[in-house]
């Protein structure tokens, strides 16, 4: 009899967990996209975009960009004569390659809508953007505007 109650309890717990998990689909925890997810945090590594790009040897243009990722498109556009590779392809690869090991898919569910927005009424899909979450320093002086 006791075992039956345990089973009922475990089933309820599983259902509640499922309901909470499915809620992730609807809540937008990252309305500003990149900068809402790429934060300094308390982990071992600073995950802000400027810090991540510094670690891979990206130039200073990233540090100076204000709206992320809109300003990245100045170089990473889709034009044939663009200075750098198209941003969408770069970012898709960074977030979806090796899905078993990729933190975006293993820890964040790999949802397109963390970075893209969808206006249900118009049907227009877009790219979320937000102001950089670091202080720009030029010549040793912080730039605030």
């Amino acid at each position: 009899m006791k075992r039956a109650w345990y089973l009922v309890g475990v089933t309820l717990l599983t259902l509640i967990t499922g309901a909470v998990y499915s809620g992730i689909v609807y809540a937008d925890e990252y309305p500003a996209g990149c900068v809402d997810c790429h934060v300094q945090g308390t982990g071992a590594q600073d995950m802000r975009i400027n810090a991540v790009l510094n670690r891979v040897g990206h130039g200073k243009a990233a540090e100076r960009s204000k709206d992320i990722p809109t300003d990245c498109l100045r170089c990473h556009s889709y034009a044939k004569d663009a200075w750098a590779s198209p941003l969408g392809n770069l970012v898709h690869r960074a977030h979806y390659k090796s899905p078993e090991e990729n933190a975006f898919t293993t820890q964040y569910g790999g949802s397109c809508q963390h970075c893209h927005n969808m206006e249900g009424e118009s049907g227009k899909a877009g790219l979320k953007s937000g102001e950089r979450n670091w202080t720009l320093v030029v010549g040793g002086e912080p730039v605030t505007d």
Partner: peptide, 14 residues
Amino acid sequence: GDCLHCHALDVESG
């Protein structure tokens, strides 16, 4: 509401 029900992503090319 998963975009990837209808869209596919080539992870090599992006």
